[in-house]
């Protein structure tokens, strides 16, 4: 496969079809966010290494030989086991991944098995060749699901896993007690037919995020949207008199998302 074809074969999400016939997708983490997570983890490792040195210095008072041996063993265990232990106890997350909202998952969307965690971390030895994860990075860029060699062997992927909360759609629609557009059921039916799902969603998102917009931008945005919806279905002028563009969009969304 030529590099261009390999790159174009990459996807940004892993879509999984459950036995119930439902599809859901897991958004894949890119190499940059993974690299940043790794840097955070590296800082944690350095901080821990400092702690080990202090502890070893104290142990050195008793026996210098024992202190050095303990230091070597602790360094080794910690550098090898840090990611393994945390990914197991935090369901696929290390400190870096947790901060950046990333998570290691099985490529089929299932829970990670211990053997998968161990092998993906042991194979860092080859992913980090020749230096600073160059080989792993190249493989990650070329592979379909942004997997480094360790991920390929372990059948794992790294996904973005921000905890999504249920949308508060009621904040938009609950206060809309009187909707003048409901007076014309045939026009409402036509509007539902004409408006595409993407247009409806865009209008709803604009209303959900209205407080994040600056006043001028908000007026302009809702004016554009209102013009767009008015071009789809023409309501009698007298019913729209005195209704702001934002209220008009709110009425349209109310019609589209509530029966």
């Amino acid at each position: 496969m030529n590099p261009e074809a390999a790159f174009s074969a990459r996807t940004h999400a892993r879509t999984i079809r459950t036995p119930e016939g439902v599809r859901f997708s897991l958004p894949l983490a890119g190499p940059v966010s993974r690299c940043l997570a790794w840097l955070i983890d590296a800082l944690c490792l350095v901080a821990f290494a400092q702690t080990i040195q202090v502890a070893a210095a104290l142990l050195g008072i008793v026996s210098r030989d024992l202190s050095q041996a303990v230091t070597i063993l602790l360094y080794f265990i910690f550098f090898l086991g840090y990611a393994m232990a945390l990914e197991w106890y935090w369901n696929g997350q290390t400190i870096g991944k947790r901060i950046l909202g990333l998570r290691v998952m099985d490529v089929r969307g299932l829970r990670l098995r211990p053997s998968q965690i161990i092998i993906r971390n042991l194979l860092r030895a080859v992913d980090s060749l020749p230096a600073v994860y160059l080989l792993g990075g190249v493989v990650c860029l070329a592979s379909r699901y942004a997997q480094r060699l360790g991920d390929l062997a372990a059948n794992t992927i790294v996904v973005r896993s921000t905890r999504v909360t249920a949308p508060r759609i009621d904040t938009v629609l609950a206060d809309n007690r009187y909707n003048s557009l409901r007076a014309y059921p045939h026009l409402a039916a036509r509007l539902r037919q004409q408006v595409t799902p993407i247009e409806a969603d865009t209008a709803l998102q604009a209303l959900l995020r209205r407080d994040d917009l600056d006043p001028e931008g908000r007026v302009e945005l809702f004016a554009t949207m209102a013009r767009h919806f008015k071009s789809k279905v023409v309501y009698p002028e007298e019913d729209l008199a005195g209704i702001s563009d934002e209220q008009y969009v709110r009425d349209v969304v109310d019609l589209l998302f509530r029966r």
């Binding site: 859901f24 897991l26 299932l110 829970r111 098995r113 999504v164 799902p197």
Partner: peptide
């Protein structure tokens, strides 16, 4: 997915179904 395209709703349900799926169909050996 069939009747509405409300994105936030879909994202929320996808995440929820994904979590439950991984739990229910995940290997139980561990």
């Amino acid at each position: 997915n069939t009747y509405s395209s409300e994105r936030a709703m879909r994202d929320y349900l996808e995440a929820l179904v994904g979590r439950a799926y991984s739990f229910i169909y995940g290997a139980r050996q561990e």
